[in-house]
Simulated scan of single mutants.
Amino acid sequence: MVDGGYSLVSRPGTYRVLIVDDSPNICSMTAQFLEELTDIQTTVTETRVTDALDRLEDEDFDAIISDYDMPGMNGLEFLDEVRAQSPDLPFILFTGMGSEDIASEAISRGVSDYLQKRSGIEQYDLLANRTINVIEQAKTQHQLQETLTQLQSLAETFGFAFLTISEDSVICHATPTVEQVFGYEQNELVGESLLMVMPERYHESHLDGIRRYRQERTRHVSWDWIELPGLHADGHEIPLGVTFGEFERNGDQLFTAIVRDLNEWDIKGQLSR
């Protein structure tokens, strides 16, 4: 966590995992099983949270596995310290102090996974699988965010509007360029229904199409390019060209729309000729 943010520091199969537990034996066993049961090649162990925090200041890790009941600072307090510096670093609470209250509190504070210690070596097989899962999920999310950032930058460069939309057809994100296309400022659209920028006669067919897609996962129109009318803030209709995409984030299915005002696009094309 040298730069204070999450980054995947290793190639697949060479992930670095920090194990924090006040029991040296558990640290050693956890490290041993992780390396035997997965392709993780580097595990680092610490028996004191303060030492773990010092190490995090100077080194990068792909995940943390931490006990809960430790002297000086418990696992949830440790999680808070990590989240303050690196909100996306995978953190697994591996504890013998299992309770619904601790699990609920850990989830509310942003833990990646929660696993209660049990007798037998089977628990380490489960822990190994969970560790690889949270690392791979973080990797996918990191790559997805980079792709979205690049798409948004490209859209803004060419004056396109870029929207992220939920399965319930709510606008979750919009680039500032939506004002050029729809006449709304960015904060006026975020949190509103996509119907806000669609002529009323298309509302029913749009909602029906969303319902069918959620049920069948079958596309009934082209996502590569479709031309349809949009509704400007002042009430007039605008011809649009739209490219759709979809992705998953934190278990939620989201859609992207890159929107072009065809009138403006036509003008730019004529000026360039």
Rank of each mutant, 00 (worst) to 15 (best):
E204C: 02
L148W: 08
I165C: 02
E188L: 04
Y124W: 00
D224V: 00
D125E: 15
V190S: 02
L207C: 13
W223G: 12
H142K: 06
G159V: 05
V190E: 10
G209E: 06
V134M: 06
Q152E: 15
E136D: 12
P199N: 00
R211W: 10
Q141R: 08
F182A: 05
T157S: 10
E136R: 11
T177M: 00
R214G: 03
G120M: 09
L163W: 03
T218I: 14
M198D: 07
Y202I: 06
L163P: 02
A138Y: 07
H220M: 11
W223I: 05
D208E: 13
E188I: 03
L207M: 12
R214E: 09
I121S: 09
R211Q: 14
L151R: 12
S193K: 12
P199A: 04
G191M: 00
S166L: 04
F158I: 15
L195S: 11
Q186S: 09
D208S: 14
Q152M: 10
L195R: 11
P176V: 05
E185V: 08
E200D: 00
L195F: 05
S153C: 11
A155K: 08
Q137T: 00
Q180W: 01
V181P: 02
V170Y: 04
L148S: 10
S205V: 11
S222D: 14
G191F: 02
Y184D: 01
G209A: 13
I135D: 04
H173A: 14
I165P: 01
L189M: 12
Q215K: 12
I121Q: 13
S193R: 13
L126A: 04
G191V: 02
R214C: 09
G191D: 04
Q152K: 14
E216F: 09
N129C: 04
K139D: 13
I135M: 03
H142I: 04
R130M: 10
S205Q: 14
Q180K: 07
T175M: 00
E136C: 01
V190A: 09
S166T: 10
R217A: 11
R212N: 12
H206S: 15
S153E: 12
P176Y: 10
L151A: 06
H203S: 09
R212Y: 07
A138G: 14
A138W: 10
T157M: 08
V178F: 06
R201F: 12
E156R: 04
Q143H: 12
T218Y: 02
E122K: 00
A161W: 03
Q180R: 14
C172F: 00
R201L: 00
P176I: 07
E200N: 01
